[in-house]
Nucleic acid binder design. Structure first.
Length: 203
DNA sequence: AATGGGATAAGCT
DNA sequence: GCTTATCCCATTA
């Protein structure tokens, strides 16, 4: 599969969050390739979104890498876990898409080693970064398609479902925004319940 | 299957 | 000192 044209990341963050579903994320770290198809994303709309780290345009040591053009990534840590965002738009609009779930494809044995378990490898933002080898101190601010982190054409969701963002519960009006997008019926997403759909919800 | 609490560490004020 | 865009295990059904 071909490396994708990432120019759509510069257009609109909500559309980017939806279009990223199904895209294959590949890392080449420690001499190993690991990859998976994106199943779950959340959009963070910067200046006007109370739930975003860049709400109001305030820059701190934590979020400074958000102030960059689309095609770079922002990695932050919380509770000892690393979470990865793909930046959208130009730096005057510090917006991005949090990758919350992927369906493992290549390098599953490496993911199991890195995670120290065989199940639940990539169904959460802190889990997938650990499986892929992404760490804030090494990868915060790097560009896509530079050899370490690559986006390739992947699969196509049959149906996209929109929900409230996970862990956002006291951010006034932003609490209820439907900015989380998942591949309907795919089990590799946060808090999955029920039975997977045919072909895990892919076309 | 659903819920609750503890672990955890960086960064903010 | 406090918060957090989390994870994992134990407990209850």
């Amino acid at each position: 599969m071909a490396v994708i044209d990432i120019s759509f990341l510069g257009e609109d963050t909500l559309n980017a969050a939806k279009q990223l579903l199904g895209v294959e994320v590949i890392t080449h770290i420690d001499g190993v390739e690991t990859s998976g198809f994106i199943t779950e994303t959340e959009a963070y709309l910067g200046l006007n979104d109370r739930a975003a780290h860049t709400f109001g345009g305030k820059m701190t040591k934590k979020n400074e890498m958000m102030f960059n053009d689309f095609g770079h990534i922002y990695v932050y840590t919380m509770h000892g876990h690393h979470c990865m965002n793909i930046l959208t738009k130009e730096r005057e609009h510090p917006e991005g898409v949090l990758i919350r779930g992927i369906e493992p494809n290549h390098g599953i044995e490496t993911m199991i080693d890195r995670r120290g378990r065989e199940k639940g490898l990539t169904d959460g933002p802190g889990k997938l970064t650990k499986s892929l080898g992404i760490r804030r101190e090494l990868h915060n601010g790097i560009e896509l398609n530079n050899g370490i982190l690559t986006l390739r054409e992947g699969r196509t969701p049959r149906e996209i479902e929109a929900t409230k963002r996970i862990g956002i519960d006291n951010k006034a009006e932003a609490t209820d925004y439907l900015y989380r997008f998942i591949v309907k019926g795919n089990p590799h997403v946060s808090r999955f319940r029920g039975k997977p759909l045919d072909n895990n919800g892919w076309k």
